[in-house]
Amino acid sequence: MALNTPQITPTKKITVRAIGEELPRGDYQRCPQCDMLFSLPEINSHQSAYCPRCQAKIRDGRDWSLTRLAAMAFTMLLLMPFAWGEPLLHIWLLGIRIDANVMQGIWQMTKQGDAITGSMVFFCVIGAPLILVTSIAYLWFGNRLGMNLRPVLLMLERLKEWVMLDIYLVGIGVASIKVQDYAHIQAGVGLFSFVALVILTTVTLSHLNVEELWERFYPQRPATRRDEKLRVCLGCHFTGYPDQRGRCPRCHIPLRLRRRHSLQKCWAALLASIVLLLPANLLPISIIYLNGGRQEDTILSGIMSLASSNIAVAGIVFIASILVPFTKVIVMFTLLLSIHFKCQQGLRTRILLLRMVTWIGRWSMLDLFVISLTMSLINRDQILAFTMGPAAFYFGAAVILTILAVEWLDSRLLWDAHESGNARFDD
């Protein structure tokens, strides 16, 4: 018995066209964080690309023209004298008006014999932002004059995390709450300039795509075929072959399989920071003279006294001054041990922890910024005066060393310790 099946006739004509040209192939790229070699397709503007294995951002879609970056830099340069030299806060102490600005706080630190601690604050609040705007201006002028731009481009990517104007702005709020127990506070004209400078700096850093600047100024022929001998440069993120001198053909720094002496430098910085954190938390970090009496505060006791007036601000200072430094030390110690013992479990967790400490590390400088600003506000000789204690130097040095330890660690070593050939990683 035959089955009668109805015929289905399409209502619209289906047209099949042959592909007349070869589909576009992607360029081969190595991930600078996990060293995976993959094919990167062509990316349009405002599109980002991520590593298929570790999800690290390979290409950032946010990109401004150099002219727009230069305009932002010149605007920031105009704001800087007002943000640093004009009063941020006014207080009335014992019937006398006192003005506080950024430069005055750094000068008070240096004047009291601790120039190293003052230079830490100076670099993060004044030096690094000033280098940022002058570097962008150098790129703008240098591109037109045919100057060598490689050193500036190499420095810009590392400079971003040292620009800490946003953290200093939080420190202004913390210092205001600490001082309000002794005097009446009012915002100064410099505060508005400083807030504007923070906003412009944040926007500029978020749109400063150094890798795209490398592509514009020093374009290189990408690798179009897969080759395990391809290496990625950690300076400019170019994937290719080393030249005859073993250097990256684009930025001219040595092109090595792994960062040289990464573990040794990381261990040295980490152990030194552990040693410095002990006096930083045991010795007094601030000293207040009130009517001839002397009151010393460690980091913890200062947080407890701050909690009596504002528990939320005390929580912020606790996280930045105690929780973050010790968390960074514990995480980095764990990561280094996992590399030495070739741990194969929990790779995803370790990668996330490394990215976390990379982002939060700079916030530990908050305590030094609060001390710097408070020193310029309260300084009335023996009637009422505020000065920093010996722990300030140890704390600042420990924070900087932990930042350097994270920067010096080559994250690809975590993958080397893991089993080879993993296309995915999980716990």
Rank of each mutant, 00 (worst) to 15 (best):
C233G: 00
L404Y: 03
I287Q: 04
D63R: 15
F122V: 15
A417C: 08
L156V: 13
T201K: 12
R247S: 08
M76I: 10
G61V: 10
L94V: 05
I253L: 06
H46Q: 11
I126F: 09
P219Y: 09
A320H: 01
M109L: 11
S364W: 02
R380G: 01
D227Y: 13
V121A: 07
T110Y: 00
L66M: 15
R250C: 13
G361D: 04
A128P: 03
K229P: 13
G113T: 11
Q295Y: 10
R350V: 09
A307W: 10
G361L: 03
I319L: 12
R250P: 01
L255Q: 04
I172A: 08
T204S: 11
I116F: 03
S372H: 04
S338K: 11
A392T: 03
Q344N: 09
L306H: 00
F123S: 02
C233W: 00
L278K: 02
I303E: 03
W162R: 02
P129M: 06
F82E: 08
F82C: 07
L169P: 03
A391F: 03
P279I: 09
W415K: 07
P254V: 15
T334I: 10
L145Y: 08
I378H: 00
P151H: 05
S305P: 03
G346C: 11
G95T: 04
G146D: 05
P81F: 05
A398Q: 05
L191R: 06
A56W: 10
M147F: 05
Q264S: 02
F82A: 07
R68C: 03
P32K: 12
N44M: 11
E161C: 15
S45W: 05
T67S: 06
L335N: 06
E42C: 10
R231T: 06
K328T: 00
R25H: 10
I19V: 12
A280C: 08
L191W: 04
T75I: 09
W140Q: 13
S309M: 06
L213Y: 03
Q112G: 13
K265C: 03
L230C: 05
N101Y: 02
G146W: 02
K342H: 15
G292I: 13
Q264K: 01
M76S: 03
C31Y: 00
R412V: 00
I287M: 07
P222F: 05
G61K: 13
E215H: 09
C54Y: 00
I177W: 07
I316N: 07
H237R: 05
I177Q: 03
F123Y: 06
L200R: 00
V357C: 06
M164W: 06
S45K: 14
F425C: 14
A2D: 10
S305K: 06
Y168A: 14
I172M: 10
P242F: 06
H261P: 01
L3V: 14
A223Y: 08
F425S: 15
I303G: 06
L401K: 08
S308R: 15
P222K: 09
I322E: 08
L283R: 04
G292L: 14
L366P: 08
S206W: 15
D60R: 11
C31L: 00
M388E: 06
F122S: 14
V16R: 11
V331M: 15
R25S: 13
D243A: 10
S193I: 01
T358I: 13
A268H: 01
W359K: 14
V121Q: 09
V163P: 05
D63F: 15
Q345G: 14
R221F: 08
T387R: 07
K12I: 07
Y138M: 03
P222R: 09
F217T: 12
Q382H: 13
A83V: 06
Q180F: 10
Q108Y: 11
Q108G: 14
V329N: 13
L230F: 12
T67C: 13
L404K: 04
L69K: 05
I322P: 01
L130T: 09
D166W: 15
T15Q: 13
A223P: 08
K111M: 02
